[in-house]
Write a protein that binds this DNA or RNA. Structure first.
Lengths: 196, 196, 196, 196
DNA sequence: CGATAACCGAGACGGTACGTCTTGTCTTCAT
DNA sequence: ATGAAGACAAGACGTACCGTCTCGGTTATCG
């Protein structure tokens, strides 16, 4: 869509028009990809989607809500299951970094985190989302526990937290091009420890 | 100074007026403490400091530069040296969380990270700062290595990265009140590993 | 109807629904009375009447059309017939001022005049209406002519115009509380002249 | 000015920039002339004047304030002094009608009256202005009184009111092309009366 | 010791975006 | 087939900041 949008998209009656919603989400993604977070404004999205601002505000009460939906539309990252927790976690991180690097997802998520620092609603939504992801990553650990690969009384959420934190910080400090060996090392430290 | 600024503070001639610089930094801190990042604008700082906007722009080319200087004015966190790496790292994290929680530093740093997501200069400055901190934390590891507490070929920077990442994410997701046991567990996983 | 509108008023099929029309006219009057011309919008009337905007647009093509119908629903002002033209005209003006002051008619008419300044249809409708009123007031003069109270070659329309103009301007400049003596004086000048 | 405005008009320091003020007033006049009252928006004026909206709001708190200043910039109407009150008043009206017809003043004033119907500030400003004009016209009457042409106890303001009202209504109902004889007749009725 | 240069507070400037409001059109759904 | 309801694109509203600029004034430094 964008400036290519059908100029005459109209209401389809007393309910949400999926064409408009799609146009808006795609415009939001495009604006973020092209102008980055600093150029991301409701105004710009509306212009690009050939939508009225009130239409955006009707369905997404805040910039954050729009960002979240944009992020969720994007394909998820696969969590490998190789039977080895170290390989699984490193693979997951590398998949995630690649996904963030190669699609606009990384920029979207960065923006979301930034937005959450000044918008309580965004913070809540992000916390919610993060909880889900932590549980998701936690499952990799639980599987390893079940295999007897990880000691039974490990708190899977804390491990997931360490892994996710490592990912976040690389995203937020522009280090998504971290080399594989470093990522593997970080995972190895968590799995095997650093103590002599 | 800040809201207490002498209304009639004047130039002291052809050089930077330290009174004004102080008033600005203090005003910046106060604005962040009271209105948060969303209320933090150069305009607001200038009003609060009874300074002209150009005076701010003259000395701090961006919001980020101002934030960095504000953050650095604040007292540093102590890095314990108990002779035990696990206790050292957990203690450092708890000191850091407390510092972030109890002073406005947490808010300042959050703002800085957020700002860095849309401002290249801020990102560079933050990367610089982070590098310094990583080295600093790395020293705790190096000491442990020297004591033979940690295996010799561990990359101290990666460990520091894991620890700092954990701290950042707690800051950015409003979890600075994490309980001590959880923090200790996270550190333990890094130090002793989670493998069976 | 108005704010009392049955919440469940439904279509009655393929013809204008008098319940809805009434609800809309009453809502329009109520909105004008409570919020004045500045608060008078098709949107507000629809909300108040619990009607859809298209229902209003179907039957009244413009704000002005709605205003005119609202104005005409309201009771007319009596034109006295005392046998004395001066008393008749002064009485008429005082009746009119009172009517405008005490009902919402004044606000409705003001709105109509305002609307006519930017809407050609409204202007035409108002001109039409004004012509009718001028003729009506003119009849008072004609009666006086017939009685020999007024010289025969006076153009009754011009006199009616002077009187109506005086009324309009008092309405448009919020001077409907003009005291009786002033009104009588104005009429007297027209009837008896000001020349020595 | 308008789209021809110097592209780089800038601030001239901590005080009102007369270039900007002029550009805005001229743009306002031009917008009114070209798009009429219905197309007259602060937004449109700002665009046309290549000025920021806040610059307009800084100096003119309302649309009405801007309209008033635009109206007052326009050359005033002459009040004849022929030694005969009837000729003076008729001449004044004809000058006024011509002025309103031939410049954009008529449209400006119509807009102002319309605006005053929904904006209290505009109403106050207009009342103020009208008071001044009434006094001005009143002076014609006073001169006639001094000459003994008009009886001494006539209230000049009421006469001025009648004359101004007649003018207003012709403006507001698009009858500025009234023929001279009708205008003279209206004035004659006020001066000599209609009674037998 | 007088001129000059850099600083200061102040605040106006052209802009952009905000979030809300209204306009007039359009489609769906219930009647 | 019609009317109620409400979504739609469009764009104005008035406000907040942005980063730049000029002003008028002060003061330390240089010639």
């Amino acid at each position: 869509m964008g400036e290519l949008a059908a100029p005459g998209r109209k209401s389809i009656g007393a309910k949400r028009n999926p064409e408009s919603a799609d146009a808006i989400l795609e415009a939001a993604e495009a604006v973020l990809a092209e102008a980055g977070y600093s150029g991301f404004s409701i105004e710009a999205v509306a212009r690009r989607a050939r939508a009225g601002k009130p239409t955006i505000y009707r369905w997404w009460p805040s910039k954050a809500a729009l960002l979240i939906e944009v992020y969720q539309r994007q394909k998820r990252v696969e969590t490998p299951d190789t039977g080895n927790i170290e390989t699984d976690l490193a693979g997951f991180l590398m998949n995630l970094f690649a996904h963030w690097r190669d699609t606009s997802s990384g920029n979207v998520f960065r923006s979301l985190v930034a937005e959450a620092q000044s918008d309580a609603a965004a913070a809540a939504a992000l916390a919610d989302y993060a909880r889900g992801r932590r549980a998701h990553t936690g499952r990799m650990i639980e599987r390893a526990k079940a295999r007897g690969e990880v000691v039974a009384d490990i708190d899977a959420e804390i491990v997931a937290d360490l892994i996710a934190s490592y990912a976040w910080r690389h995203l937020l400090t522009n280090r998504l091009d971290e080399d594989e060996e470093t990522i593997r090392a970080a995972v190895r430290y968590v799995v095997r420890g650093i103590a002599a």
